[in-house]
Design a protein around this nucleic acid. Structure first.
Length: 269
DNA sequence: AACACAGTCAACCGCAAAGGC
DNA sequence: CGCCTTTGCGGTTGACTGTGT
């Protein structure tokens, strides 16, 4: 990469993280919580910049992350959200529990973009490509207008009707119609829409509980909040770390029932 | 088997927003 | 209000892996 490094201090390591570094970072965050990222490498004994630590944690080490490819339903949701929000990956990721902005961005660029192009849909505007060609000839750029509408939508947190919102039908087309009912269902379900579009809170994931989990100062042990079991697929990633296991963190005390209870409780609140 | 090319994804970078003083 | 520091975001890169020839 030809750019200037963000932290060119002597001895700051870059490149892929080792299992040992991961272990140090996880241990530190589980012990101290997410404090000042700039201080994390020093306190955790890592030769990394704080930015790198934060990225590693949020994109890879967080125990609430799902691993593996996005499901068809998740893909459809990403397409729908992208149609409304554009490249605001963090906003999109906030609507997909257990997924990171980086993951979604990568998946968009490698899979979904191509899929849409194959279908003759512009992945940027979500309009049919031939329509785009006609637009280019027209003096008035209404793609800009649609963008402004998009901003307005987000700011007011309002939900467009399914008639106004072409992304629903687009999403239906996305899987060739057969599996495309998912988003239509969402569009028809006000309750679910409110859940999905609530700006700050995501009822699908109890981040408050997770915050308690990573922050011992909150006064609850790991076992007192619901988290996936380590045998559960969503957390199996940690077992891949050959140099350390779940026992190292004392987190092998969860089961699926606890997770479900926790999520249900969060939804009721 | 060896090479080239394509696809994937973790990690990097610069920039902008947020917050503190 | 302006400056500085910290954090978060989105775009981009390049190492690694898979596939084709």
């Amino acid at each position: 990469m030809g750019r200037q490094p963000c932290c060119d201090k002597l001895g700051v390591k870059k490149g892929p993280w080792t299992a040992e570094e991961d272990k140090k970072l996880i241990n530190f965050i589980l012990t101290n919580g997410q404090c000042c990222w700039r201080a994390v490498p020093k306190l955790a004994g890592l030769r990394r910049c704080g930015k790198s630590c934060r990225l590693r944690w949020t994109n890879y080490l967080r125990p609430d992350l799902k691993r593996g490819l996005l499901t068809e339903d998740e893909e459809q949701l990403v397409v729908d959200l992208h149609a409304r929000l554009g490249n605001r990956w963090s906003k999109i990721a906030a609507r997909l529990p257990g997924r990171t902005d980086n993951e979604i961005k990568n998946h968009w660029n490698t899979h979904i973009k191509k899929k849409l192009l194959k279908m003759g849909i512009d992945p940027v505007t979500h309009e049919p490509l031939n329509k785009e060609a006609k637009k280019a000839e027209a003096p008035f750029d209404d793609s800009l207008e649609s963008h402004n509408n998009q901003e307005q939508l987000e700011e007011t947190n309002s939900i467009p009707s399914s008639e106004e919102n072409s992304s629903c039908s687009l999403a239906e087309n996305f899987t060739g119609g057969a599996g495309g009912s998912h988003l239509l269902g969402i569009c028809d379900d006000d309750q679910l829409l409110n859940c999905l579009w609530g700006e700050e809170s995501n009822p699908l994931v109890d981040f408050a509980s997770w915050d308690q989990f990573i922050n011992p100062a909150a006064g609850e042990s790991f076992c007192e909040v619901g988290l996936p079991s380590w045998e559960d697929q969503s957390c199996a990633w940690l077992l891949d770390c050959k140099d350390f296991g779940i026992q190292d963190f004392g987190m092998d005390c969860f089961n699926d029932a606890q997770v479900i209870n926790s999520l249900e409780t969060a939804n009721k609140q």
